[in-house]
Amino acid sequence: MTYKLISNGKTLKGETTTEAVDAATAEKVFKQYANDNGVDGEWTYDDATKTFTVTE
């Protein structure tokens, strides 16, 4: 399945996607992506749209 990340960081804003077997796997990928880009904030997940959002 395709999962989307919306980043509302102070230094990184935008969207990216990943293919993953489940939401937990996608979350690990996205949290590593955010960490690699210096984004640390509040996370939410919408199962209906398969979208994670991180806001700093």
Rank of each mutant, 00 (worst) to 15 (best):
M1G: 12
M1A: 13
M1K: 11
T2C: 14
T2H: 07
T2L: 13
Y3F: 13
K4A: 05
L5P: 03
L5Q: 02
L5Y: 03
L5G: 03
L5H: 01
L5R: 00
L5M: 06
L5T: 02
I6K: 07
I6V: 13
S7P: 04
N8T: 11
N8D: 09
G9S: 12
G9K: 04
K10Y: 10
L12M: 11
L12P: 05
L12R: 04
K13T: 11
K13W: 11
K13R: 14
G14C: 14
G14W: 15
G14D: 08
G14V: 15
E15T: 12
E15C: 15
T16G: 04
T16D: 03
T16V: 14
T16E: 06
T16L: 14
T16S: 10
T17F: 15
T18I: 15
E19H: 13
E19N: 13
E19C: 14
A20M: 03
A20I: 02
A20L: 02
A20K: 00
V21C: 13
V21R: 12
V21S: 12
D22K: 02
D22N: 09
A23G: 04
A23F: 11
A23H: 08
A23C: 12
A24K: 10
A24L: 09
A24R: 09
T25K: 05
T25W: 07
T25A: 13
T25V: 06
A26P: 00
E27Y: 15
K28E: 08
K28S: 09
K28Q: 11
K28L: 12
V29K: 09
V29N: 06
V29L: 12
F30W: 01
F30Y: 01
F30C: 02
Q32R: 09
Q32E: 10
Q32S: 08
Q32K: 14
Y33W: 15
Y33S: 02
Y33N: 03
Y33K: 03
A34R: 01
N35V: 13
N35F: 15
N35Y: 14
N35C: 15
D36S: 09
D36T: 08
N37H: 15
G38D: 07
G38E: 06
G38K: 07
G38P: 01
V39L: 14
D40Y: 15
D40S: 13
G41S: 02
E42N: 09
E42V: 14
W43R: 00
W43H: 00
W43P: 00
W43M: 04
W43I: 03
W43E: 00
T44L: 08
T44Q: 09
T44V: 08
Y45N: 00
D46F: 03
D46K: 03
D46L: 03
D47S: 13
A48K: 11
A48D: 12
A48M: 10
A48H: 10
A48Q: 10
T49Y: 04
T49H: 05
T49I: 06
T49F: 04
T49W: 03
T49N: 08
K50C: 06
K50D: 01
K50P: 01
K50H: 12
T51R: 02
T51S: 04
T51Y: 02
T51I: 06
T51D: 00
F52I: 01
F52A: 00
T53V: 08
V54D: 01
V54A: 01
V54T: 02
V54Y: 04
T55P: 01
T55M: 09
T55A: 06
E56I: 12
E56K: 05
